[in-house]
Amino acid sequence: MSIVANLKCVWNYRVLVQNLVGRELKARYRGTVLGFFWAFFNPFLLMTVYTVVFGFIIQPHDPAFQGSPWLYALFLFCGVLPWTWFSSTMLESANVLMINGNLIKKILFPAEILPLVTVTSNLVNFLFGLPILLAFFPLLGKPFTPYMLFLPVVILVQFVFSLGLGLLISSLTVHFRDIKDILANFLTFWFFATPIVYPLSFGTISKSGVLRTFLNLNPMTHIIGGYQSCLFYGELIHWKKLGLTFLLGLLLFWAGYTVFDRLRDSFPEEV
């Protein structure tokens, strides 16, 4: 199968991927006063905003939060952090082939490295944010549970899913530049269609069958749910739901890679 051969070829370029990810991270924070600290600071600021708006002003009532806005903030952080990884990966994927058009036109190397680097460098950013998140657990009296060890599984599912979608988006955007704009708006919608600012156990959701079905059809629900389970709730991840999402991710990866491979030859002229 050609995908296997392609993957082997990409494997040979692993040093390049590693270096490009390093370059991406260095370049992102070079010239800023706070440097790498931004990787921690960005999600922190975002969380502060959400905590003030949702925790203190709207004050959702759910047994899991025990009426504490701070616990709610922690719940938020568990979802917002991986979502930031996902959404910035998607937005950057849409641009990545065009930004690196010079490389594609002038140097022979497998172009799928570029979306791969996007997903990976954002993953590293996400991993930088994790210690901040974990530092809040003892502060708020939340215990560390052994279920946290399942975190890598959830990360893997999200990685495959993001990479599949990233390949699809990056290759299609070369031909349809408007995907970029559609995507920016769609991601806002997607954010609220995923249980990040509200728990799935919320009253209005558990009462409405339509809403529940809708949320369950969203693969990000299960990925974000996975983080919330093993971090916030301290319980076993939903194996079935997450497993199905993983299969969907693999399918998406296959489809995305096939489309990418089909369009590959048109990149040097179109980017």
Binding site: N19, R23, K26, G31, N102, K105, K106, F109
Partner: peptide, 24 residues
């Protein structure tokens, strides 16, 4: 075909030499 294709402006010449070399 083009010299320095793929140099990233924000990082140092040293780092660019490595990345460019690996690409080539």
């Amino acid at each position: 075909i083009e010299l320095g294709a793929g140099f990233h402006p924000e990082i140092t010449g040293r780092e660019n030499v490595f990345i460019n070399g690996i690409m080539l």
